[in-house]
Design a protein around this nucleic acid. Structure first.
Lengths: 148, 148
DNA sequence: CTTATTGTAACTCTTTTTGTTACAATAAAA
DNA sequence: TTTTATTGTAACAAAAAGAGTTACAATAAG
């Protein structure tokens, strides 16, 4: 899996919670079953979403998670920012002080890399969790009962 | 280093070759010194650029690499495509057949992920290796002699 | 022939990510 | 108040991806 496995899983979590978590707390175990992973992996991703005010949590028996905002106000860009660890592109740390190219490379690519990231933002920001849920509904004509 | 270390290094190589490799072959050893890595690492990246008609090579003594096209016709998008291994975003391989969200997630994110990639292309494609070299020239007022 | 170089395989080392175990903290419920 | 279900997190193991290294056949210049 790549650095962005978290991103796709976080989207999964948010869609799941919109559909299934309406007025109800969802546990990390239920999410883990849906995603086919370990509850701790879920809690780690949720921790990042919690830090970014996307998800809230309740401890103790019958505790769990809930969406902290309407799904229509959670964009894929919000999620991407919450769960990403490293920069989109790598900037070199080993610099050869005797080479003008090496010395200036970071500065040279800096502008373009920022542009690329902004471009990505412009693609991800307009898409909300609710848009994906709506499309899922359209695809599957789903009833709340008929999924895990 | 991340998955995209290759990308930045490949840009480094191309800029270096435009400035220093004018009418001259550049060896993997010289590039490795500039990048502060091993010649084999360079040859591996160059192999990808070669497969994409960005760089050509000559074997044997006094052999080396050369830009196969004018630097003004090599975009960062060309380089990105040449050296990238995995998709920009991860699509899940473990699918839970009992969960509608899991079952349809790939299809749900597919469109947005493509849009994000296209957005990135629109940022990277207009920038050519020659643009970066030109800016390097402006920054450093470089003479061919004064770098490694 | 000798030498310098690419191309590539095979392997190790390092870093990143994911998975797992364990347990304190918490709150519901009996 | 004890039991139970749950989050939060630390610590560690396993897996995957990358980068670095060694080795060597193939090639071409001199």
């Amino acid at each position: 899996m790549q650095a962005n496995g978290r991103f796709t899983t976080a989207i999964h979590i948010c869609i799941f919670m919109q559909i299934k978590g309406d007025e109800k707390l969802i546990s990390s175990q239920v999410l883990a079953d849906s995603v086919k992973t370990n509850p701790v992996v879920i809690r780690r991703i949720v921790a990042r979403l919690r830090d970014n005010d996307i998800i809230g949590s309740v401890a103790g028996a019958k505790g769990g998670f809930f969406l902290k905002r309407p799904a229509s106000q959670i964009s894929l860009w919000d999620i991407y920012q919450a769960v990403r660890e490293t920069d989109l592109f790598y900037k070199p740390k080993k610099i050869n002080p005797e080479c003008v190219v090496s010395m200036n490379l970071s500065e040279l690519v800096d502008g373009v890399y920022s542009e690329a990231e902004l471009a990505m933002k412009s693609a991800l920001a307009p898409v909300k969790v609710s848009d994906l849920s709506a499309r899922l509904n359209k695809i599957t004509d789903l009833k709340k009962s008929d999924f895990c």
